[in-house]
Amino acid sequence: MTVDHEPVSTADGGEPRFSTWTGKARGWALRRLPPDKLLPEGQPSYVSSWIYVFGMGAVAALVYIIGSGIVLALNGPTWFHVSSLGRFINSTHLWSVELFFMFMVIHLWGKFWMAAWRGGRVLTWITGMLAFVVSIVTAFTGYLLQTNFDSQWIAFQAKDALNAVGIGAWFNVADLGQILMWHITLLPLAVAVVVALHVVLVRMHGVVPPLEAAASDAQLSSATPNPATESEHRK
């Protein structure tokens, strides 16, 4: 036997109210991010600039980093430190990280100079900065996993800094097993979640327009719908 929880229509004929938490969550998600905003078919013309490409470039690099990281994890260090194919995949894992950071920094410069936190995009900006910081920690743990003199030197320089801020005993860079777990599980998951949240926020608020765009530009109102004008359109 099933029990249906039909949405209750409001007296003024507005949006239905749900009685269950799943219905309320669905209603909230659909209001904030309807499917046509989540997966749009077009973008305003101001997005047709190379400076808008680097965010997605960073995401593409991240996809390769995670994919190559999975291959490295499945085969292990005796494969990627010894065989020619393993060394190649290991190298492309490093070079895609280089590209990831380069694209992310250019994306950061572009967004900083166009004040991308405008129009209620503060959380988008904050999640972008958070993605950058977490990525630095993730890359740092990757450098510690080279298992050579270079990684040993980096670890023993870093331990002093980490001890100085009081987390050295808990986050021990000289503990290869602990750093391996951080690098292949916790930190990639954190980067993926923060980047996914960042992209969803970009979809919710729309791509930030250039500073010189006029406030009356019709594309701006279609890219970043104003709740006040939206409710007027419904009437």
Binding site: S48, S49, W50, I51, V53, F54, M102, V105, I106, W109, G110
Partner: peptide, 13 residues
């Protein structure tokens, strides 16, 4: 990165 940033601003899409 600086060169790519400048090129992204001046090269037409």
């Amino acid at each position: 990165m600086v060169v790519l940033f400048i090129l992204a601003l001046v090269i037409p899409f």
